[in-house]
Amino acid sequence: MTMEHTERHITPFSLFAKVLIVLLILTTVSVLITEMHFGALSVAVALTVASVKVSLVLIFFMHLKWENTFLRLMVAGVFIIFTLVIIFTFIDYLLR
């Protein structure tokens, strides 16, 4: 984090364009894979691809790559708590 407390980082246009291309490729992948109907596996694949896409948006579009450690830890922490809340509540339902 060399950018901390200095000039704000300016993300180049080309990087945003590259991220979009990757996101579009991932969208195509998730459409093609779910078209094949793997049953329960396609849910897992769809969620995994979606998670990768979400990470890319968070890191590049939402600028987290260049934010300070505090903000990055806060966002990462809340995402972990969020995932745990969803998983544990769902497990709680399944075991009832």
């Binding site: 779910t34 849910v43 691809v49 968070l58």
Partner: peptide
């Protein structure tokens, strides 16, 4: 504009999960 951008990206994030779960995984 940065914070409005963050809001707009969140709308995108939610759709990234909505789309496969509602439309794709049948």
């Amino acid at each position: 504009i940065e914070n409005s951008g963050l809001y707009w990206h969140l709308v995108d994030l939610i759709w990234i999960f909505l789309f496969p779960l509602l439309y794709l995984v049948t």
